[in-house]
């Protein structure tokens, strides 16, 4: 495993505390995945191995869980993870168009990051801000009443 020793030590301490809360260690798996993801920005093979060891299951079992939940990323995301809501309402109010133009403008597709690692894009489902449709998210903070032009400006500003 390639975590730096002091990082590993901290992760192990946190993991122990989380695991202690539950009747069975496995219940700590989702919080542990959030933990390793917040360390590395995504769930790496090392992260998977760490979680598997911590709760006493196989890496394959952990992977089965990781792939089920869209918020666990298996590739590094950008410093700014940009989501465009393409669920029904946002889609018809302009979300589809925003996605098409932004994806072309940034040059990456769904769940992909730019080469400099600054920005990644994701098509997201309804983010419970339909009253501001169409919406976008940057690191899960939402931006309302977007247009393709505003979307490109937003990405330019954060880069």
């Amino acid at each position: 495993m390639s975590f730096a020793p002091e990082v590993l030590e901290r992760l192990e301490r946190d993991a122990k505390e989380i695991i202690a809360r539950y009747p069975k260690p496995r219940s700590a798996l989702l919080p542990l995945l959030h933990l390793v993801q917040s360390e590395e920005g995504y769930v790496s093979d090392d992260g998977i191995e760490f979680c598997a060891d911590a709760v006493g299951i196989t890496p394959a079992q952990v992977t089965g869980v990781v792939t089920f939940y869209t918020q666990y990323k298996q590739e590094p995301v950008g410093d700014y993870h940009v989501g465009v809501c393409i669920n029904s309402l946002c889609a018809i109010m302009g979300g589809d168009q925003i996605w098409r133009e932004l994806s072309e403008y940034v040059g990456v597709g769904h769940d992909e990051a730019t080469e400099d690692g600054k920005v990644s894009l994701e098509r997201i489902e309804c983010n419970a801000a339909c009253d501001y449709a169409p919406v976008m998210m940057v690191n899960w903070e939402f931006f309302d009443d977007m247009t393709p032009a505003k979307a490109k400006q937003l990405v330019d500003d954060i880069r």
Partner: peptide
């Protein structure tokens, strides 16, 4: 915290999620 899955609003899916599945 959930992990981004609509189905995890179904009550028994929540149980599996909390239990680490």
């Amino acid at each position: 915290r959930g992990g981004g899955a609509y189905i995890c609003g179904e009550e028994t899916a929540i149980f599996n999620s909390i239990e680490g599945y």
